[in-house]
Protein backbone atom coordinates (compact mmCIF):
# COMPACT_ATOMS: atom_id res chain seq x y z
CA UNK A 1 0.00 0.00 0.00
CA UNK A 2 1.26 3.45 -0.85
CA UNK A 3 1.83 6.03 1.82
CA UNK A 4 2.53 9.73 1.45
CA UNK A 5 4.61 12.41 3.15
CA UNK A 6 3.87 16.08 3.72
CA UNK A 7 6.71 16.75 1.25
CA UNK A 8 4.56 15.17 -1.49
CA UNK A 9 6.54 11.97 -1.75
CA UNK A 10 4.97 8.57 -2.26
CA UNK A 11 6.45 5.65 -0.35
CA UNK A 12 6.13 1.95 -1.09
CA UNK A 13 7.49 -0.76 1.18
CA UNK A 14 9.29 -3.57 -0.66
CA UNK A 15 11.03 -6.14 1.55
CA UNK A 16 13.42 -4.32 3.85
CA UNK A 17 13.44 -1.20 1.66
CA UNK A 18 11.23 1.78 0.90
CA UNK A 19 10.86 3.01 -2.70
CA UNK A 20 10.43 6.80 -2.96
CA UNK A 21 8.94 8.99 -5.69
CA UNK A 22 6.91 12.20 -5.90
CA UNK A 23 3.17 12.50 -6.31
CA UNK A 24 1.32 13.62 -9.43
CA UNK A 25 0.28 16.71 -7.52
CA UNK A 26 3.95 17.53 -6.85
CA UNK A 27 4.95 16.92 -10.46
CA UNK A 28 2.17 19.19 -11.68
CA UNK A 29 3.20 21.92 -9.26
CA UNK A 30 6.83 21.63 -10.36
CA UNK A 31 6.07 21.78 -14.06
CA UNK A 32 8.25 20.13 -16.69
CA UNK A 33 11.23 18.52 -14.98
CA UNK A 34 14.49 19.08 -16.88
CA UNK A 35 17.15 17.88 -14.44
CA UNK A 36 17.39 15.33 -11.65
CA UNK A 37 20.43 14.87 -9.42
CA UNK A 38 20.38 11.60 -7.47
CA UNK A 39 22.36 10.62 -4.38
CA UNK A 40 25.18 8.08 -4.51
CA UNK A 41 24.17 4.52 -3.85
CA UNK A 42 25.35 3.41 -0.42
CA UNK A 43 25.04 6.89 1.07
CA UNK A 44 23.93 7.06 4.69
CA UNK A 45 21.25 9.72 5.09
CA UNK A 46 19.33 11.32 7.93
CA UNK A 47 15.57 11.77 7.94
CA UNK A 48 14.74 15.14 6.38
CA UNK A 49 18.09 15.43 4.59
CA UNK A 50 17.82 16.86 1.07
CA UNK A 51 19.18 14.09 -1.12
CA UNK A 52 17.65 14.67 -4.56
CA UNK A 53 17.66 17.90 -6.57
CA UNK A 54 14.86 18.39 -9.07
CA UNK A 55 14.98 21.29 -11.51
CA UNK A 56 11.90 22.13 -13.51
CA UNK A 57 11.54 24.78 -16.19
CA UNK A 58 10.44 27.03 -13.33
CA UNK A 59 12.64 26.37 -10.30
CA UNK A 60 14.84 24.05 -8.28
CA UNK A 61 13.46 21.93 -5.46
CA UNK A 62 14.54 19.02 -3.30
CA UNK A 63 13.40 15.62 -2.22
CA UNK A 64 14.22 14.74 1.36
CA UNK A 65 14.94 11.36 2.88
CA UNK A 66 11.65 10.23 4.48
CA UNK A 67 13.54 8.17 7.07
CA UNK A 68 17.13 7.72 8.20
CA UNK A 69 18.92 4.88 6.50
CA UNK A 70 21.04 3.82 3.54
CA UNK A 71 20.34 4.60 -0.11
CA UNK A 72 20.48 1.16 -1.77
CA UNK A 73 19.56 2.06 -5.38
CA UNK A 74 18.76 5.08 -7.55
CA UNK A 75 16.77 5.34 -10.78
CA UNK A 76 19.63 6.43 -13.05
CA UNK A 77 17.28 6.53 -16.06
CA UNK A 78 15.74 9.70 -14.62
CA UNK A 79 19.00 11.59 -14.99
CA UNK A 80 18.89 10.98 -18.75
CA UNK A 81 15.13 11.37 -19.16
CA UNK A 82 13.90 13.63 -16.34
CA UNK A 83 10.60 14.21 -18.17
CA UNK A 84 9.52 10.78 -16.89
CA UNK A 85 8.69 12.49 -13.59
CA UNK A 86 5.88 14.36 -15.39
CA UNK A 87 4.84 11.54 -17.72
CA UNK A 88 4.25 8.96 -15.02
CA UNK A 89 5.17 10.16 -11.53
CA UNK A 90 4.00 6.96 -9.85
CA UNK A 91 6.40 4.90 -11.99
CA UNK A 92 9.28 7.38 -11.80
CA UNK A 93 10.87 6.26 -8.55
CA UNK A 94 13.91 8.24 -7.40
CA UNK A 95 15.66 5.99 -4.89
CA UNK A 96 15.31 2.99 -2.59
CA UNK A 97 16.27 3.39 1.01
CA UNK A 98 16.93 0.75 3.67
CA UNK A 99 15.69 2.30 6.92
CA UNK A 100 18.06 2.13 9.86
CA UNK A 101 15.16 1.22 12.16
CA UNK A 102 13.38 -1.28 9.89
CA UNK A 103 10.52 -0.75 7.49
CA UNK A 104 7.46 0.85 9.01
CA UNK A 105 5.19 3.25 7.16
CA UNK A 106 2.72 3.61 10.05
CA UNK A 107 3.56 7.26 10.67
CA UNK A 108 2.82 8.37 7.11
CA UNK A 109 -0.42 9.47 5.45
CA UNK A 110 -2.67 7.14 3.53
CA UNK A 111 -4.18 8.23 0.22
CA UNK A 112 -7.31 9.72 1.79
CA UNK A 113 -5.27 11.80 4.24
CA UNK A 114 -2.94 12.94 1.46
CA UNK A 115 -5.82 13.96 -0.79
CA UNK A 116 -7.18 16.00 2.08
CA UNK A 117 -3.79 17.70 2.48
CA UNK A 118 -3.64 18.81 -1.14
CA UNK A 119 -7.31 19.78 -1.18
Amino acid sequence: MLKYTEDHEWLRAEGDEIVVGITRHASEQLGDVVFVELPDEGREVEEGEEIVVIESVKAASDIVAPVSGTVTAVNAALADAPGGVNDDPMAAWFFRIKPADGVSLDGFMDEAAYNELIG
Binding site: G31, D32, V57, G83, N86
Partner: peptide, 9 residues
Protein backbone atom coordinates in the same frame (compact mmCIF):
# COMPACT_ATOMS: atom_id res chain seq x y z
CA UNK B 1 2.34 31.60 -16.75
CA UNK B 2 1.31 28.46 -18.64
CA UNK B 3 -1.63 26.64 -20.18
CA UNK B 4 -2.35 22.91 -19.93
CA UNK B 5 0.25 22.24 -22.68
CA UNK B 6 3.00 23.14 -20.19
CA UNK B 7 6.01 25.44 -20.48
CA UNK B 8 8.27 23.00 -22.31
CA UNK B 9 5.78 22.11 -25.04
Amino acid sequence: VQYPMGVLN
